[in-house]
């Protein structure tokens, strides 16, 4: 799956999780940029990303995410078998 396809899918997930049909995640985006993005919706986000891409994140991986770019990179490495 290409970066573009990952971001397309992430866009659907972000809109559903944060209840905002205008939201478009970018690599630089962090929790500070999205009003709804708190520690609880973050858990929903992680679960939803796992479900959407069919991947599972480890405790360490979940702790290391700082931005949408990190998340997309992690998903990409998992899908390509490198994670």
């Amino acid at each position: 799956m290409s970066q573009t396809e990952i971001y397309e899918k992430l866009t659907d997930v972000f809109r559903d999780v944060f209840d905002d049909e205008d939201l478009t995640p970018t690599a630089e985006m962090t929790a500070d940029d999205v009003e709804e993005w708190d520690s609880l919706s973050h858990i929903r986000l992680m679960l939803s990303v796992e479900k959407a891409f069919g991947v599972r994140f480890s405790t360490v991986e979940l702790g290391g995410l700082k931005s949408v770019g990190d998340l997309a990179g992690l998903v990409e490495s998992k899908l390509n078998g490198a994670g």
């Binding site: 559903d16 999780v17 209840d19 929903r44 939803s48 479900k51």
Partner: peptide, 11 residues
């Protein structure tokens, strides 16, 4: 509905 659907409805 999944948790996101339920969350939107509750909102």
């Amino acid at each position: 509905l999944d948790i996101n659907g339920l969350n939107r409805l509750a909102k």
